[in-house]
Amino acid sequence: MIALLRRDLTLALRAGGGFGLGLAFYLILVALVAFGVGPEGALLARIAPGILWVGALLACLLSLDRIFALDREDGSLELLATAPLPLEGIVTMKALAHWITTGLPLVVAAPLLGLMLNLPGPGFAWLFVSLLIGTPALSVLGTFGAALTVGLKRGGLLLSLIVLPLYVPTLIFGAEVARRGAEGLAVQTPLLLLAGITCGTLALLPFASAAVLRVNLR
């Protein structure tokens, strides 16, 4: 399974776009929001945690359809399914690879973009922590959506329609942590709930993803 992870990371590096594309999208999105609402510092500071979370979520969404589509096209997905690895493990590794190539760069970039949005001082640490805890759930949920739509032509839009409602609880608690952090309030409750959601999805969703993948490979 480590071999699978290593292969996916190698491919993301060599094919290009794996790391860069999501980040570029994140940057553009933040800039567009600033253009949209105006340059006033106080307003940007107030909406910064929410914008940075929504931006990370959308940037994450962008690369979801590649999780299985490429492997499906060249036949590796079928061959992997007949390999001795459990399908649950395969989808977990796929989600992990997606998180490392897409989620983690976003987590690292978010504080920098926070500077641009005039995020208040105490917010940086909590923004970073909330994204660090929350983005794995986004990758795991996205992997489920990708597994659902892997056999479909033009599945991209459908994938977004299915995955985005699933992102709601993660977004709410994640953005709440960042917001409360920025305003200097106690973050413990939403932080624990966010961690709970991430743990729950990590533990259970791979089974659902593997089940739908099995159906789609049939």
């Binding site: 699933l166 609880p169 659902a208 159906v215």
Partner: peptide
């Protein structure tokens, strides 16, 4: 049959997340 299988699993996962969203939104 594929569609039935996929939508059934989506329905189950969706139910869990709909309930989660309900509480999240309440909190929000």
């Amino acid at each position: 049959d594929t569609a039935a299988d996929l939508t059934s699993i989506l329905c189950i996962v969706g139910s869990v997340f709909a309930v989660l969203s309900r509480y999240a939104v309440n909190f929000w």
